[in-house]
Design a protein around this nucleic acid. Structure first.
Lengths: 338, 338
DNA sequence: GCCTAAAATGGAAGCGGTTCCACTTTATAA
DNA sequence: TTATAAAGTGGAACCGCTTCCATTTTAGGC
């Protein structure tokens, strides 16, 4: 089978300790010895067994990222940020996809502990009290993105403010019949209450403008592109439809724009649309949106995990990032002529 | 720290062997003992150390999936297929993202061997001779998707045929000025020669129709949505543009359609578009396309890996899946009036 | 040339499991 | 009842590394 450290030691005519020191870049090896051992390693095509290393070191050198919907740009961007930071450390990254609730259970109940993950980054994922307690008991550093958990470091934005920002922008353009396309209630879907907060910002802005909310103008569902399309068609095919829509995320907004085009509604002349996130496509399709710092989320989170692992930092804290309204071509003044 | 199997054994008043047997569902434990041990395990919140298990078992019970562009629906779908099969086995799935060539190197040179992966599924990823040889030397079962490697089991489609199918469909509709949007040459990008083959199908169909290929009508680049958009704008803004386009994949075709709309070109009246893959969105946007069995790729690959692991099957073989033309709304007869 | 500190080195112990072997207990048949 | 097979059980050995301690080698200072 695969050569072991013993084989290498034997062939090189040194002790296993020396080989181990070479592997781990210890300064306690003479340069001749080091070179010689390196050659033997190459010759034998030796690869240290990561499981044995992990067992001996009592650490897996692995950081897990819990996230739903790998397919959506928001998560991909966050992941990129994390990956970039971890790239030049000797921690491996492992993505734990929690599309389905049972997967989440499994990871949070077993995987993390069995694999002895050194750290966990949860993106848009809720943690219940028991889970928090268990993670703390195991002294597993946890950082949370796009959610707020008091016991852990959290990186997020003020979604209420974001919802307000988007809605206020539409109001300022003269719109009063403003639709909202959003995620289902967080608890139901197993995702934290972020969706609610964004919705509450929408409501707040309307209230401040003295406009009573109209449930005919709200639609809820999973915020995929396909669903954005379907919900928009539904929303706009009723009598007296809204003249503007605030869509929960850019991904769904892409679907919404498609639906509007298919209904021969012009954007922004007939309908204005605001998204959320500012993913790459948003720029291409000239979508007005609320920018959220996706890659930075990832970078900050990864760096924080590294800090926690080196023990130089406290194990909880909060950072709320700023949001920006990016005004582009999908929003315009209310067309009174229509 | 975490309790070990010894702790459990001690508290339960049994030997470690018995605890191990309980953990592994061995029939050689009386039901009372089993139950008692289970209770202790729960009470102590014990989780077996996966690294220790792996070391002892000499297997990681992990299967790696090498794939580029996690963000694209094609890969997500394939992954889903794999995941569904592996879900009810006790193999873990680990996704190895090889967007960047250096990552590919790292995984294929170290990770696979260090982590002692039990199997590897490569999606749209090339393997050079040295890599193949090394994988074989380590007796690591490998299955390849969307590519053909003689030494391994491969699941793919005939891309030449696909290109032909798409192009012939456009020819049959009367088009003669047919554009092609495709991936760069495989070798260059580090992706196998699939792109070339799809392109050659396009050329073949033209040839059979007696139409000389026109390089003004071809554009190459990474087949992202954004690039599909950009290349289409470029392609169509030249004098005497094509009246139909065969786009390498649906993802890029989505971008292409957006570009056409932004240029006020009607589909299919002014321009016909054929994609490739038949991802979910294709149906929503009514895109004519060539269907490729994405989830089935994943399922077949995962099952084959399991077969290889159980040693019941030969370690190489080929399966070429059938392709279907899915005729939808983005293709129509050549509009001679224009 | 000799003593001492520093640099290199070898190898045993331990990480936390699985598994096999030896042994005890229980069930089965005569 | 007793011989005998089957079912349960305990524990040592081993998986392949890291690390620490003891030991050897080298370098430096006089």
């Amino acid at each position: 089978m695969s050569p072991t450290i013993k084989d290498v030691a034997q062939v090189a005519g040194v002790g296993v300790g020396t080989v181990s020191r070479v592997l781990n870049d210890s300064p306690l090896v003479s340069s001749e010895t080091r070179e010689h051992v390196q050659q033997v390693i190459t010759k034998l095509n030796y690869h240290p067994n990561a499981m044995a290393q992990g067992l001996s070191r009592r650490t897996s050198r692995t950081i897990g990222v819990l996230m739903p919907f790998l397919t959506m740009p928001f998560f991909v961007n966050v992941l990129q940020g994390i990956d970039n930071v971890l790239l030049d450390t000797n921690y491996d990254l492992i993505v734990l996809n929690v599309d389905k609730p049972e997967k989440r259970q499994q990871y949070l109940n077993n995987y993390v502990y069995s694999r002895r993950l050194d750290g966990l980054i949860g993106v848009t994922v809720p943690f219940d009290a028991a889970e928090v307690e268990r993670l703390q008991a195991f002294e597993c550093p946890v950082v949370v993105i796009d959610n707020r958990v008091d016991e852990f470091w959290s990186f997020y934005v003020n979604n209420t403010e974001g919802g307000q920002l988007a809605t206020a922008h539409l109001l300022a353009l003269g719109h009063t019949k403003i639709g909202y396309l959003g995620d289902l209630h967080g608890i139901v879907r197993g995702v934290p209450n972020t969706p609610e907060h964004r919705y509450s910002g929408y409501l707040l802005a309307l209230e401040q403008a003295g406009i009573p909310p109209d449930s005919r103008y709200t639609r809820f569902g999973i915020m995929s592109e396909a669903n954005g399309y379907a919900l928009t068609k539904d929303l706009m095919s009723q009598p007296d439809p809204p003249t503007a829509i605030f869509v929960y995320c850019d991904t769904a907004a892409v679907g919404a724009l498609q639906a509007l085009r298919d209904m021969n509604l012009r954007v922004p002349e007939d309908v204005s649309v605001v998204g959320f996130d500012d993913i790459d496509v948003a720029r291409h399709i000239n979508l007005t949106t609320i920018r959220q710092p996706m890659e930075q989320y990832g970078q900050h989170a990864a760096n924080k995990i590294l800090d926690l692992l080196s023990g130089t930092v406290m194990d909880s804290g909060q950072k709320c990032f700023a949001l920006d309204l990016i005004e582009r071509g999908t929003t315009g003044p209310l067309n009174v002529a229509v």
